[in-house]
């Protein structure tokens, strides 16, 4: 019996190792051939030119900008929703709201993409001008997509704060509001950070929905109403026809993305450890 569990665990580890080996074995030679500084900091991505140019700096900035944008939209809304759910929500409403938030997490990203394409893109175009496919649009959409993560994790962090803090604050004559914002939230801060970090992880790895609303121009970001291309989009859009060094450069993009995710997960891990100490 024990061996079955062991086998299952080994399959998981094997899968992770296989992915890493595949990515690094194909990506690192390509990075070497292009030159690491040229690859990471080069601002020109023109795989079809002669000679070809493989700078992914615009895509790195693209990924970072839509992720930051998502945090800007998603975190305040998500956090306030979590506070509402934990401290203000009437029981009847909670029974609807909680599953609704969970459902939000289960919607496939292509559906989010459709929503973005049909609703958000025209909305941004009409309100702010430009063609609507932009950093702003992608940020709003990703902000919505990280809501369930931010809400779920911060709600449980808020609920984990001992009741005695609440009582202690009230006994000093503080209002419910003051208690929630000046005692409960600070006490839950490490859990809330965790929520933000997980949200960042979700946003930076998102592919399908972003492609549908971000414009995907492989150029340096030129303003929040202009389009950009993320690392994920770069890979998906060109993988179908890429060959040789071009293909290697795309896999190398995957390596960089993996390093970003790894960094985020380590941060998450450290936060978690600090929270339990």
């Amino acid at each position: 019996m024990k061996n079955i569990f062991l086998t299952a665990a080994l399959v998981t580890i094997f899968a992770i190792m296989l992915i890493c080996v595949f990515l690094f074995a194909n990506g690192i030679p390509a990075m070497k051939e292009i030159g690491l500084p040229e690859f990471l900091l080069g601002t020109d991505w023109s795989p079809g030119d002669v000679p070809a140019s493989f700078g992914i700096y615009p895509m790195i900035l693209g990924s970072i900008s839509v992720t930051l944008g998502a945090v800007l939209f998603g975190v305040p809304i998500g956090l306030l929703t979590a506070v509402f759910m934990a401290y203000y929500c009437p029981n009847g409403l909670y029974k609807v709201l909680k599953p609704a938030v969970e459902l939000l997490a289960g919607i496939p990203s292509v559906v989010y993409g459709f929503f973005g394409l049909m609703i958000l893109v025209p909305f941004v175009r009409n309100l702010f001008g430009g063609n609507g496919n932009s950093i702003l649009t992608a940020s709003i959409l990703l902000g919505i997509m990280i809501l369930p993560t931010v809400i779920g994790v911060s709600e449980s962090a808020i609920r984990a704060v001992p009741d005695q803090y609440y009582e202690g604050s009230l006994a000093l004559g503080a209002t419910h509001e003051r208690t929630v914002f000046f005692t409960i939230l600070p006490a839950a801060s490490s859990g809330i950070f965790t929520a933000v970090v997980l949200g960042i992880g979700r946003a930076i790895g998102e592919t399908m929905a972003v492609i549908m609303v971000a414009g995907n121009q492989a150029r340096m970001p030129a303003g929040i109403l202009k389009g950009i291309r993320t690392m994920t989009a770069n890979i998906v859009l060109e993988m179908g026809y890429a060959a040789d060094l071009h293909r290697g450069a795309l896999i190398a993009t995957g390596v960089i993305l993996l390093l970003f995710i790894l960094f985020i997960n380590i941060t998450f891990y450290l936060l978690k450890r600090r929270a339990t100490i």
Partner: peptide, 20 residues
């Protein structure tokens, strides 16, 4: 009520300092 609790302070059985 908040003014009442300001006038009538309370010390609990278990120390309940805030994590600050």
């Amino acid at each position: 009520v908040n003014l009442l609790r300001k006038r009538v302070g309370m010390v609990f059985q278990k120390p309940n300092l805030f994590p600050m």
